[in-house]
Write a protein that binds this DNA or RNA. Sequence first.
DNA 1: AAGAGGCCCTGATAGC
DNA 2: TGCTATCAGGGCCTCT
Length: 288
Amino acid sequence: MPELPEVEIVKQSLKNKLDHKRIKKVIVSNRNLRFRIEKEFENFLEGKSITNITRISKYIILTLDQKYFCLIHLGMSGTLHLFKYKKKEKNTNLSFYNSKILPKKHNHIKIKFHNCMIIYNDPRRFGFFKVFKNKEQLNELLFKLGPEATSKKFNFKYLKNKLTNKKKNIKNCLLDQNFVSGIGNIYANEILFHSKIKPTKLGMHLNNEEIRKLEKYTKIILKLAIKFGGSSIRDFKDSKGLSGFFQNEFKVYNRENKNCMRKNCNNKIYKIFISNRSTFFCKSCQKK
DNA sequence: AAGAGGCCCTGATAGC
DNA sequence: TGCTATCAGGGCCTCT
């Protein structure tokens, strides 16, 4: 599901809700996510307070007691659901949460707070939770990432330098998180359409104008997608259950055989596969 | 060393 | 209706 805009939306929807909340109880019902959840996971989290919630590329980071970290990646199908506490019935230990609909299966992790809880659901289990006992350990993992697509570090100079002699096609470059972080398959397709660059073009063959457009539209598209609340295909929702609307703005993604939306272009959108990922483009707008 | 492809996993959908 | 095949928003690992 989630690329940088969707992860940002999830983070925003958790922010202020979980800030400074103390974790009362953690329940893991399936430890086999992308990485197996460590035995100490529950114990480590319980009793600690969430002192900050941030996002780096497609990762959500919970800061715990200002010095520990819980790194969350939603993989392809992960979702976080926030439930507010409603009431506790007299003489029982049952807690009741508001009635927001939750999938019946694949709810792998529950994190309970005083008056709310979050549930991690992930059918395909490509996502993961991992705790870090200090910042150095966390940075070790994160420093391998390329500059964030929305950041100043991702600029003409960086791209020009990186693309020189790059024999990889530009679409795979955009999907390579060590090249630039935060972009996934949907936004890679959309960015290349707006930049008028053919997805199969080798990185080394981009001219200066194309590099400038690539930088420009990467930032425009991702920031616009955040404004629209992300893209909700296959039911992406934020932690409160709200959908995004950027899917209505797609120009090429999932539009095989439909008309190109650029003014005065009469061509259709083609679908090809690049490294087994579906790739959409207009042959006439993205000639080379 | 860089790049391509397989693979992890479940579910929705298309085609027969 | 019910089977099988294919494909999904990610990224790690292996092979060349």
